[in-house]
Design a protein around this nucleic acid. Structure first.
Length: 433
RNA sequence: GGAAGGGUGGCUGAGUGGUUAAAGGCACCUGACUCGAAAUCAGGAGUAGGGGCAACCCUACCGUGGGUUCAAAUCCCACCCCUUCCGCCA
């Protein structure tokens, strides 16, 4: 959520930054200002009436204390209809309030000044590249072929269980997935200074609102129902990413300045409806309804937000470096960024069997956009309450990492070599038939 | 799911209709005393919204939402959460 004061005072600036996203959100500004103006007008009126009522009520109390009942009754009569007027105005204030907030919650974050203007993924500049595309002396297989031949994933039976877009990892596939999770967690905890947390996989609506997934993208997520009572449907949602519960851990709190920075790392499965997305239903692991991810979350002082973002990207890159994978880092242009982000880097890993790069990490600084929504603050040394920057980054997504790993390290004989840093976790240096 | 108890400020804990933003204690900040500290004494300090150039003023907030009343932390209703016991259960 943007600061209403910023919208009021620097309206043109806000409009211009929003326009850079190319989604037409700046058109909401006029309505927001209107609702805000209306709210304040009514509020002032209601509050002055309340002030009057409070004053008279105290007088009545004092008169009754002195047994001057007649005078008290007279005063009561005087203020009787004040209450009705106040109730009426309060309703209007609430309405204007709700109207303003509903609009505010649909407004995306402003892009940071360092983000290049652009419309689509075509306009995303490449920031840096690590390694290069691997040359095979044989025709590399796709991950689907490798999973079949090495029996790492049973696509057909996964579909039998849950429909398309789900994976059944088997034997070495399951072990590789588990080894990767453990490897990633250990790396971030011991080398990068994150604290591991393991959050609930179902959360209430307020958490989705807090990080900006609701209300605008409600159709993307799985709601669950307890028992067979339809009334319970939608009280809880399956998390689309660990960001949802973890970024909300301190919602509505006022942290001490010395508690910052907070750095959390969490492994969770992620559940996504992927409504309307191309690719679900095709065979493979690139886009699925459920995948594993190790997520990084930081809550930091505003002045450190962008330094911490750079570090976070390096933390995610380290994963790919250690696994011997070729990747590139790109910066998302204004038109391609997520709803809550002010600046985002994506990391794309090379998958030779696909002949394409796969997004395995997206690291964003949402600045105070989320902390405002969840009313998370910290008390600065000055005594002032401030909104911290909240950052999130994948460190990394697993299914696609799995794909890149087996496609990159496949051998002519159909086996897959395991990179040295992963061997202690998988307890083998090669997966073969 | 059943029963009982409970949700008040950073923490603890009083408060059952009228100067209660809310006693007392702890913690915190400032000052005095001290070489310094402790102890003691004096004072300060919640969050949010609105108004004002400002000193400042107003409003709301005692789990949440309604209701009764001139007036609600206090009375009524619904809901949520926590604790303990029982049941069920990985």
């Amino acid at each position: 959520m943007l600061d209403i004061k910023l919208i009021r005072e620097k309206t043109d600036f806000v409009r211009a930054r929003l326009a850079l996203r190319g989604a037409g959100d700046e058109k909401l500004i006029e309505q927001i200002l209107q609702a805000d103006e209306q709210r304040r007008t009514i509020l002032t009126e209601a509050e002055s009436l309340k002030s009057q009522r409070n004053r008279v009520s105290k007088e009545i109390g004092a008169l009754m204390g002195q047994k001057k009942n007649e005078e008290a009754e007279a005063k009561k009569k005087e203020t009787r209809d004040l209450g009705d007027k106040i109730a009426g105005l309060d309703k209007l204030v609430n309405k204007a309030d709700a109207e303003r907030d509903a609009l505010m919650l649909r407004l995306p974050n402003l892009p940071h000044e360092s983000v290049p203007p652009g419309k689509t993924a075509e306009d995303n500049p490449e920031v840096r590249v690590h390694g290069e595309k691997i040359n095979f002396s044989f025709k590399p297989k796709s991950h689907v072929e490798l999973c079949d031949s090495l029996k790492l994933v049973d696509f057909a039976r996964a579909a039998k269980l849950s429909g398309s877009g789900f994976l059944l990892y088997t034997n070495w596939g399951a072990r590789l997935e588990r080894a990767l999770i453990q490897f990633l967690l250990d790396l971030h905890i011991t080398e990068h200074g994150y604290t591991e947390v393991s959050p609930p996989l179902m959360v209430g609506e307020q958490c989705l609102v807090g990080v900006g997934q609701f209300p605008k993208f409600k159709d993307q997520y799985y709601g669950v129902a307890e028992g067979d009572d339809a009334k319970n449907l939608g009280k809880l949602y399956l998390i689309p990413t660990a960001e949802t519960p973890v970024a909300n851990i301190h919602r509505e709190e006022i942290l001490a300045e010395k508690q910052l920075p907070i750095r959390y790392c969490a492994y969770t499965p992620c559940f996504r409806g992927e409504a309307g997305a191309a690719g679900v239903g095709t065979r493979g692991m690139i886009r699925v309804h459920q995948f594993d991810k190790v997520e990084l979350i930081k809550i930091v002082k505003p002045e450190n937000g962008y330094d911490e973002l750079e570090k976070m990207v390096l933390n995610a890159e380290k994963v790919l470096q250690l696994l011997g994978l070729h990747y590139r880092v790109i910066m998302l242009c204004t038109g391609d960024m997520g709803f809550g982000s002010a600046k985002t880097y994506d990391i794309e890993v090379w998958a030779p069997g696909q002949g394409s790069y796969l997004e395995v990490s997206s690291c964003s600084n949402c600045e105070d956009f989320q902390s405002r929504r969840m009313n998370l603050r910290f008390k600065a040394e000055s005594g002032e309450n401030k909104f911290p920057h909240i950052l999130n980054g994948s460190g990394t997504a697993l299914a696609r990492l799995f794909v890149a790993l087996i496609e990159t390290h496949q051998q002519a004989d159909g086996s897959v070599n395991i990179p040295a840093p992963l061997q202690p976790y998988l307890k083998t240096n090669c997966i073969s038939i």
